[in-house]
């Protein structure tokens, strides 16, 4: 009975995960894509629970789905969420090659996991009840992986500073007046179209 339940939960979570991932990349409206990603994160949390990673599952929901995705949604709301056709534009062979590359990666990983690894990836090790709990994770973070812990905190600090700088008014400079002023210098061409010399559509020669 327990096993059957586990299987049901797993299948449901797996399908939700895959479906939401596909939804993210196929929806035209970025708002919907973001919401699909929230669903993806949720199903992943369930899978983590099945893998005895309780703390990580909780962190995933709190941090990832709770903070990061909210920030995403804020930005999408601010930007107005322009809808665009997902597959349009770009050189024709780009889409084909992209599918090929992604497919190749998938196949390779499947081959590696399924064939090359033999049966070695099948079992689970025996773990006690505290495996995946905050006690263990906290202990490791403060002893064996202290450096990673500290460096991660520095990375977060830098990201925060970067965010402030990117968003500050000083960077927007004369452009904040709006319109489409022409200017030289820098690496940006005048608004609204960037380097309008080469319209990307119909560039089959590339």
């Amino acid at each position: 009975m327990g096993n059957f339940l586990v299987w049901v939960v797993w299948v449901a979570a797996a399908f939700a995960c895959l479906g939401s991932a596909v939804a993210v990349i196929t929806f035209a409206n970025p708002f919907y894509s973001a919401l699909a990603l929230v669903g993806n994160l949720g199903s992943l949390a369930v899978l983590y629970l099945l893998l005895s990673a309780e703390f990580v599952a909780a962190a995933q929901m709190l941090v990832y789905a709770g903070a990061v995705m909210v920030m995403f949604l804020f930005v999408i709301a601010y930007l107005g969420g322009r809808a665009e056709t997902p597959w349009a534009g770009g050189p024709g062979w780009q889409a084909v090659a992209a599918v090929g590359a992604a497919g190749a990666l998938l196949v390779e990983i499947v081959v590696a996991v399924g064939l090359k690894a033999g049966g070695r990836l099948s079992e689970e090790a025996d773990v006690d009840a505290f495996f995946g709990g905050p006690h263990e994770i906290g202990r490791l973070f403060l002893t064996d992986h202290l450096l990673a812990f500290e460096i991660t905190s520095i990375v977060l600090l830098i990201a925060a500073i970067g965010g402030v700088i990117l968003g500050s008014n000083a960077r927007s400079g004369p452009e904040s007046t709006g319109g489409s002023p022409a200017r030289a210098g820098g690496t940006r061409s005048p608004a609204p179209s960037i380097s309008a010399a080469q319209p990307p559509e119909g560039e089959a020669a590339r």
Binding site: G90, Q94, A104, A112, R206
Partner: peptide
């Protein structure tokens, strides 16, 4: 080409090739 996506594709394709090599 200047296309970001082309460059990303190059990275992905390179990764795929490397994986084959390692395997």
């Amino acid at each position: 080409t200047g296309f970001l996506r082309n460059y990303a594709l190059a990275i992905a394709a390179g990764l795929a090739v490397l994986a084959v090599v390692f395997l």
